[in-house]
C-alpha cells in the first residue's frame, strides 16, 4: 500500500505549471453556507436538515455510505436540483433565489467532477477540457496554455489529440477532473472522483485537489473510501448517513457534537496513514 509521503515523492507533476491556474484573490470568506437543507424524492428523504459552512480554501471530505445523500447535496450545490427546504449560498450565489438565467454564472464559479465522468466521447481530450474556457471566450493561445498546464499536472499531455472514447476509464476520469480544474473554480465539488482510479493515481489526484485548496479554492470531496481519507488525517470530514450529518470534525459543520479527527476516525473507522486498509 502506498503511503502518502512516499507517493508525494514519486509525483511526476511540475507544480510550476499550476501557477498558471492560480486563481484571483477571493473577497468572500464563506464559500459555501448551507442551513437546514432538506430534500426528498417522493417519499424518500434524501437530505434532512443539513447545515454547514465552508470557508475560502477549506478542504472537506464528504463521507458516507451509498444512498447517504452525498450526490444529492452536491447536485443541489451546483443548482442541478432545486432547493425544496432550507437555504444554500455558494460563491455568493443564493440558490434559493437564483433565477435560471443566472445558473450558468454560478456554474462558472463551481467546478464539478462526476463519478460518471460526463465527458463528450466523440471529442478529443483537448476539446473536452477546453469546453468551459471556450464558453468564456478565451483566446486560442490562452486556452491552449491553460489546457496544457492542467494536462501536464494530470499526466494527460500525450493524449491531448485523442478522442475520449479511445482512452481508458481512468484517463476519462482525469479528463473530467481537468475540465473542472482548468477554469480555476472558487468552489470544487467532486463526487467520488477517484472511484475509477487505482490507489496510486487516486493519491496523485488528491494532491492536485489539495494544491487547489492551497490556492484558495474550497473543495468538497465526496468519497466513501476510508483508505483515501486515511492519508489525510488533518483533513476535515463530514459524515452523512440517511441524509443527515451524523459527525464532523470541524466547527463549520452544523452538528452539535463536532468531533476531533481522531474521534471521527475511531467512531467511523476512518484509517489513518498508519492503519490504511
Amino acid at each position: 500500500m502506498l503511503r502518502h509521503n512516499e507517493n508525494k515523492m514519486r509525483l511526476p507533476w511540475r507544480a510550476t505549471n499550476l501557477v498558471l491556474l492560480r486563481p484571483l484573490p477571493y473577497s468572500l470568506s464563506r464559500m459555501i453556507r448551507v442551513r437546514h437543507l432538506s430534500h426528498s424524492f417522493g417519499q424518500h428523504q434524501a437530505l434532512s436538515d443539513v447545515s454547514f459552512s465552508l470557508g475560502k480554501g477549506e478542504f472537506v471530505f464528504l463521507s458516507g455510505p451509498s444512498g447517504a445523500g452525498k450526490t444529492t447535496l452536491l447536485r443541489i450545490l451546483h443548482a442541478a436540483l432545486p432547493i425544496q427546504r432550507g437555504e444554500a449560498i455558494v460563491a455568493d450565489f443564493n440558490l434559493v433565489r437564483l433565477p435560471s438565467a443566472s445558473v450558468p454564472l454560478l456554474r462558472r464559479q463551481v467546478g464539478v467532477v462526476f463519478q460518471d465522468f460526463k465527458i463528450l466521447p466523440l471529442r478529443t481530450v483537448e476539446e473536452n477540457i477546453s469546453l468551459p474556457l471556450e464558453l468564456r471566450g478565451l483566446s486560442d493561445t490562452h486556452m491552449e496554455r491553460r489546457v496544457r498546464a492542467v494536462c501536464i499536472a494530470l499526466g494527460l499531455e500525450e493524449r491531448l489529440k485523442v478522442k475520449c472514447r479511445d482512452i481508458s476509464g481512468g484517463e476519462q476520469q482525469r479528463v473530467a477532473i481537468a475540465r473542472a480544474l482548468v477554469t480555476n473554480p472558487k468552489v470544487l465539488l467532486a463526487d467520488e472522483p477517484t472511484g475509477n482510479l487505482d490507489p496510486a493515481l487516486s493519491l496523485r489526484l488528491m494532491e492536485l485537489f489539495k494544491q487547489f485548496q492551497t490556492y484558495g479554492a474550497t473543495v468538497l470531496f465526496a468519497t466513501h473510501s476510508r483508505e483515501l481519507m486515511g492519508h489525510y488525517p488533518e483533513a476535515h470530514v463530514m459524515h452523512l448517513e440517511s441524509g443527515r450529518i451524523t459527525a464532523a470534525n470541524w466547527p463549520g459543520a452544523g452538528v452539535a457534537h463536532a468531533l476531533r479527527a481522531g474521534a471521527l476516525r475511531e467512531n467511523f473507522a476512518v484509517p489513518g496513514p498508519g492503519n490504511a486498509r
Binding site: 451546483h78 456554474r107 464558453l135
Partner: peptide, 16 residues
C-alpha cells in the same frame, strides 16, 4: 441530450 447536459454543467448559457 447528453452533450447539452454537459454544456449546461460547465456553465454554458442557453444561447451558447
Amino acid at each position: 441530450a447528453h452533450e447539452i447536459e454537459i454544456l449546461q454543467l460547465v456553465g454554458a448559457f442557453n444561447r451558447h
